[in-house]
Nucleic acid binder design. Structure first.
Lengths: 227, 227
DNA sequence: GGCTCGCTTCGTCCCGCGGCGAAGCGTCGG
DNA sequence: CCGACGCTTCGCCGCGGGACGAAGCGAGCC
């Protein structure tokens, strides 16, 4: 009656954060990187359907922005201001901003995106191959050339029987956690599978995150992948 | 499981503001003045019992502090930081900090505290009387002296029949909206009643707020009350 | 002492919202 | 073209929490 509007705006904003699942989502995105809906569902500890509703609500309120890529939908904080607000609230909440959890770090470091490699590792691998002129880059397709073949063969990632890789298309795909390109498509998929088969990478139970074994570190160093 | 604590802290904090009634309370206190529980209940538009629960919750969370005076309990924002957080949120919410409502201004300007005058008017009147040496100030009692009697008689606030005012005790009482002293006790009550009877002040329906009539402005100016 | 009055506590009701499973839609790989 | 997969929509359930009235408590006035 008196003062009609403001209290509801503030209440609405507070309600956005009032739910632990939504709070977890926002906190996870505080590093201003993007994550697909399913990953955020896992982080929040709720079913996909539930997370979807939360994400929609946050996006409608303008806290999150969303961009579709393939069958994924990547969510991120809408802008820097949002991150700033949340951080301010963390101080008020009344605890310090917590260090990112170890699980988060791992996830950022290496994870499979669909079936190929993403995260820091995916980006670093792509950079390395491109830097070594191991790739022929087309408009939207990528192929491994003879340079690349010998490079990978030395590392043991591909063997004689894999000669077919030369014919495989790859595609570049921006990694929303790193905002940089990495390798997808059949070529990317094959490389990821090889790394898992060779136990360079160890899949974690259920999640998309992968751990890097000692052997993997060694192989990557030999390959010249810098990260 | 993973990251056990922070999300709940943030959610809990958000929940404090998520309720329109609580948001209204916090907004009303944003000027860092104190208000009694009943007034906040009116502002929030809820019953006293409901408001009491909200106030308790806000106080338990450390957002509000409370101090009892007589049968009133005055609530205010716990400290400057809280005010700052809320203001930051107002920006995020995502509207500008609204101008104080007209109703709020009136309430601050003049209101009855229990039965005597408080607000700016109560404080100004007390200052004027003290400045004119119209009061004999004891340790915790105050009396109107001959100076004061003639001053008030000139203004028409007291008349022949009110000679008894000289015998009335007054008490000083800090006004939590202005953080300054004003006049309470039987003397303060009588003056307030006279001002209402003489229609210097017009009571508003239901609330403790009073409006000042043209006649009141005139009389106060004649009295030398500066405000 | 007895009354009024401001506030809190208690008991109760009920609505809103978060939770999930199932189904629908669009994309990708083969 | 088919199946797998990621995400959203739909429908239903259950519970937490906000609403109020009545009663209890303490302070102030006469």
């Amino acid at each position: 009656m008196d003062e009609p509007v403001t209290r509801h705006q503030l209440a609405e904003f507070g309600a956005l954060l009032a739910e632990p699942a939504r709070a977890a989502i926002v906190l996870a995105l505080l590093d201003s990187r993007a994550r697909p809906a399913g990953e955020l569902a896992t982080i929040a500890g709720v079913a996909a359907a539930t997370a979807s509703a939360h994400l929609k609500r946050l996006a409608d309120a303008g806290l999150l922005s969303v961009v579709g890529q393939g069958r994924h939908r990547y969510y991120r904080l809408a802008d820097e201001d949002v991150a700033h607000w949340i951080e301010t609230l963390m101080l008020a909440a009344p605890r310090r901003i917590k260090e990112r959890s170890i699980a988060d770090r791992d996830l950022a470091a290496a994870r499979t995106c669909y079936k190929h490699l993403a995260g820091k590792l995916g980006v670093a691998l792509f950079d390395r191959l491109r830097g070594a002129h191991a790739l022929d880059l087309g408009s939207d397709a990528v192929r491994l050339n003879r340079n690349g073949e010998s490079l990978l063969r030395e590392s043991g990632l591909i063997v004689e029987g894999d000669a077919a890789v030369l014919g495989l298309d790859g595609r570049t795909c921006v990694d929303w956690t790193e905002r940089r390109f990495h390798l997808s498509g059949p070529l990317g998929t094959l490389l990821a599978r090889r790394m898992l088969d060779e136990r360079w990478l160890l899949r974690r139970n259920g999640t998309r995150a992968v751990g890097i074994s000692a052997r993997g570190h060694e192989g990557l160093r030999a390959l010249g992948v810098d990260w």
